[in-house]
Simulated scan of single mutants.
Amino acid sequence: MSALIELQDICVDFNQLRVLDRVNLILSKGKITTLIGPNGAGKSTLVKVLLGLHTPVSGKVLKSKNIKIGYVPQKLKLNDTLPLTVERFLKLAGKYSRQELTEALRLVGAEHLAKNDMHNLSGGENQRVLLARSLLQRPDILVLDEPAQGVDVQGQIDLYDLINTIRLRFGCGVFMVSHDLHLVMAKTDEVICLHHHVCCSGTPETITKHPSYIELFGNRSRDTLAFYHHNHEHHHHDLSGQPVKGDAGTCSHHSHGHHQHD
């Protein structure tokens, strides 16, 4: 896997307090990395360093040449008094043709929302539109800050499915921030547990057994961990998560408690 972004020994201070302490991180093409940690662990600061919005006091940020980063923020502050359709919102992203805008919405299963008002979208719909906007520039890496915030459980499953489909289709890297592992685990290649420094990192299965993880999140979160299994053997989905027409296969979504893979 080729590295897209590498952070080396990143340190960040706020008011003489060390928020990030010697953080190392490699984000690669085609790989989903999830950053978890309790509130106040420095997750948002790390995202700002990645995006080039915050300069660390020490350490290096190495990015591959001409890298395009698509950013999906947690919340978007829109002026409530201004009517703004989804289509118009996407046009604000730059000079893209109507065909490109429609294609971006189609990719995230939100084509039907084009004429809808941005203010009236559900949490899941809003995330899909923000994803569509970030896909317009065909990013090498997608950075998503708490994408499942304010989205119901089924919506989260669909959203993580969609992110995974985008990763497979475009071969881009994905860096996701989450405050709990929950459903995100099933689609993640690597988990990084942050509490001002990297406490532990590895596959979802190994992380949940790590003493640092258990100390931060407790055994309880292990028991409630939903590994979401998706049976893809007999059928295919299109990008909006719908089974492909003429496909008689069944799709099983299981969301259940702690489950170990041998």
Results as ranks from 00 to 15, higher is better:
125 E>C: 05
150 G>K: 10
79 N>D: 15
100 E>M: 09
79 N>L: 10
164 N>Y: 13
106 R>G: 14
66 N>K: 14
74 Q>P: 08
71 Y>I: 01
100 E>L: 03
175 F>L: 11
85 T>Q: 05
67 I>A: 07
132 A>K: 01
50 L>Q: 09
161 D>H: 08
94 G>M: 11
55 T>V: 14
73 P>A: 06
72 V>I: 12
149 Q>Y: 03
141 I>M: 09
43 K>D: 06
181 L>I: 11
124 G>S: 08
89 F>I: 01
137 Q>C: 13
140 D>L: 08
70 G>K: 05
48 K>A: 14
96 Y>H: 15
182 H>F: 13
70 G>T: 07
84 L>E: 12
46 L>M: 13
93 A>N: 11
99 Q>F: 05
42 G>V: 00
117 D>E: 13
96 Y>A: 02
75 K>D: 12
139 P>C: 06
102 T>E: 15
159 L>I: 01
100 E>T: 05
47 V>F: 15
119 H>C: 03
101 L>K: 10
74 Q>K: 06
85 T>I: 00
65 K>N: 09
98 R>E: 15
111 E>S: 07
140 D>K: 09
174 V>M: 07
43 K>L: 08
162 L>Y: 10
51 L>S: 02
143 V>T: 05
146 E>V: 04
63 K>Y: 03
84 L>S: 10
114 A>K: 14
150 G>I: 04
160 Y>I: 02
159 L>H: 02
121 L>W: 06
182 H>E: 13
103 E>N: 14
98 R>V: 09
116 N>Q: 12
88 R>V: 05
54 H>P: 00
99 Q>A: 14
131 L>F: 07
90 L>M: 09
184 V>Y: 05
60 K>A: 08
170 F>C: 00
55 T>Y: 12
119 H>N: 14
46 L>Y: 08
80 D>G: 01
122 S>N: 11
52 G>I: 03
46 L>W: 11
69 I>V: 15
117 D>H: 04
54 H>L: 15
82 L>N: 08
119 H>W: 02
53 L>W: 11
52 G>N: 09
132 A>L: 03
75 K>Y: 13
94 G>L: 11
150 G>L: 04
124 G>I: 03
168 L>S: 11
96 Y>K: 03
88 R>S: 15
144 L>Q: 10
55 T>R: 14
135 L>F: 08
105 L>R: 12
184 V>W: 04
80 D>N: 04
170 F>H: 13
177 V>M: 13
139 P>L: 01
44 S>T: 14
68 K>L: 07
176 M>Q: 13
108 V>L: 09
143 V>S: 02
104 A>P: 11
54 H>N: 10
112 H>Q: 15
111 E>C: 00
66 N>M: 03
180 D>N: 07
140 D>G: 11
78 L>N: 08
181 L>W: 05
156 Q>M: 10
69 I>Y: 13
115 K>V: 08
73 P>D: 08
134 S>L: 01
64 S>W: 00
167 R>C: 10
155 G>W: 04
108 V>E: 12
150 G>D: 14
171 G>T: 02
180 D>C: 01
154 Q>H: 12
73 P>S: 01
78 L>R: 01
184 V>D: 12
50 L>A: 08
100 E>G: 02
49 V>M: 06
167 R>A: 00
64 S>L: 04
